[in-house]
Computed example of a mutant assay.
Amino acid sequence: MNYKTRKISNLIFGLASVAMAIILFDGCKLPAEDKETINSDESNENLVEAKESLDEARKEYVLRYEAFKLESDNKIAENEKVIAELKAKAKMESNAAKRDFEKELAVLEQKNQSLKEKMSYYKDEGDDKWESFKMEFNQDIDSLGQALKDLTKNDTN
C-alpha cells in the first residue's frame, strides 16, 4: 500500500468512525427523549386526573354543606316557632312564674340566634374542620332542642 492509499484509507476509516459515533450517540439520545415525552404525557394525565378528582370532591363537599345548612336552618326555624309559641303562653302566666319562664326562654332564644349566626358565618376551612364544626353544631342544636322540649314540659305541668 502506498502512502496516498493509506492516507485515503485512514481518512475513510476516520470518517466512518465519526459517522458511527454520531449514529450511536444520536441513537442513544432518542430513547431518552422518548422517555421524557412519555413521562411528561403521564405526568400531564396524572395532573388532569388529580384536578378532576379534586373538582369532584369539591362538588361533593359543597353539596354536603348545602344539605347540612338547609337541615340546620330548618331546625333553627322550628326552634324559633317553638320560642314564639312559648312567648305567647308566657303572657298568660302569673307574674312570678312568668318572669322565670321568660328568663329561661330569653336564654334559649339567644342560643338559637347564636347558632343561626354561627351557621351563616361559617367559612370553608377544609374537610377536617368542617367535620368538627358539624359535630359541635349538631350537639349544640340538639341540646337547644332538648332544652326547649324540657321548658315546654315544665310549662304544661
Results as ranks from 00 to 15, higher is better:
residue 155 D to G: 09
residue 76 I to W: 02
residue 125 E to L: 04
residue 1 M to P: 14
residue 34 D to T: 07
residue 16 A to T: 12
residue 49 E to P: 05
residue 120 S to A: 10
residue 62 V to R: 09
residue 47 L to I: 10
residue 105 L to F: 11
residue 31 P to M: 01
residue 95 N to M: 07
residue 121 Y to H: 06
residue 149 K to C: 03
residue 70 L to I: 09
residue 90 A to E: 14
residue 35 K to E: 08
residue 50 A to K: 06
residue 149 K to P: 13
residue 101 F to Y: 13
residue 76 I to F: 03
residue 142 D to H: 12
residue 141 I to N: 01
residue 28 C to L: 00
residue 116 K to G: 04
residue 109 E to Y: 02
residue 85 E to R: 14
residue 147 A to L: 03
residue 97 A to V: 15
residue 18 V to Y: 03
residue 111 K to Q: 15
residue 46 N to H: 01
residue 4 K to N: 05
residue 142 D to E: 11
residue 96 A to G: 05
residue 24 L to V: 00
residue 74 N to P: 06
residue 23 I to C: 00
residue 74 N to Y: 12
residue 44 N to L: 11
residue 150 D to M: 07
residue 155 D to T: 06
residue 139 Q to I: 02
residue 43 S to T: 09
residue 121 Y to P: 01
residue 85 E to W: 08
residue 64 R to N: 14
residue 78 E to H: 11
residue 112 N to V: 13
residue 45 E to H: 07
residue 99 R to Q: 12
residue 71 E to V: 04
residue 100 D to W: 15
residue 34 D to R: 06
residue 2 N to E: 06
residue 10 N to H: 10
residue 135 M to E: 08
residue 79 N to W: 07
residue 120 S to V: 11
residue 157 N to I: 15
residue 145 G to R: 05
residue 93 E to G: 05
residue 22 I to L: 03
residue 66 E to Q: 15
residue 2 N to H: 11
residue 23 I to F: 00
residue 9 S to I: 15
residue 134 K to F: 09
residue 71 E to I: 11
residue 66 E to S: 10
residue 17 S to H: 07
residue 150 D to W: 05
residue 137 F to A: 02
residue 80 E to C: 07
residue 13 F to R: 12
residue 53 S to W: 04
residue 110 Q to M: 06
residue 126 G to Q: 14
residue 97 A to F: 14
residue 77 A to R: 10
residue 128 D to F: 09
residue 94 S to P: 01
residue 29 K to E: 00
residue 149 K to L: 14
residue 66 E to R: 12
residue 135 M to R: 04
residue 97 A to W: 15
residue 120 S to H: 09
residue 41 D to H: 07
residue 46 N to Q: 10
residue 94 S to G: 07
residue 151 L to I: 13
residue 62 V to E: 10
residue 119 M to Y: 08
residue 129 K to P: 02
residue 141 I to T: 04
residue 82 V to I: 15
residue 95 N to I: 07
residue 41 D to V: 09
residue 144 L to C: 11
residue 132 S to K: 14
residue 81 K to R: 13
residue 153 K to P: 05
residue 17 S to P: 02
residue 4 K to A: 08
residue 100 D to A: 12
residue 28 C to E: 00
residue 122 Y to R: 02
residue 21 A to E: 00
residue 105 L to S: 11
residue 147 A to D: 13
residue 39 N to S: 12
residue 17 S to G: 09
residue 116 K to R: 15
residue 151 L to Y: 13
residue 157 N to C: 03
residue 86 L to G: 03
residue 54 L to N: 08
residue 144 L to E: 12
residue 2 N to V: 10
residue 135 M to V: 05
residue 115 L to F: 04
residue 54 L to R: 05
residue 148 L to I: 15
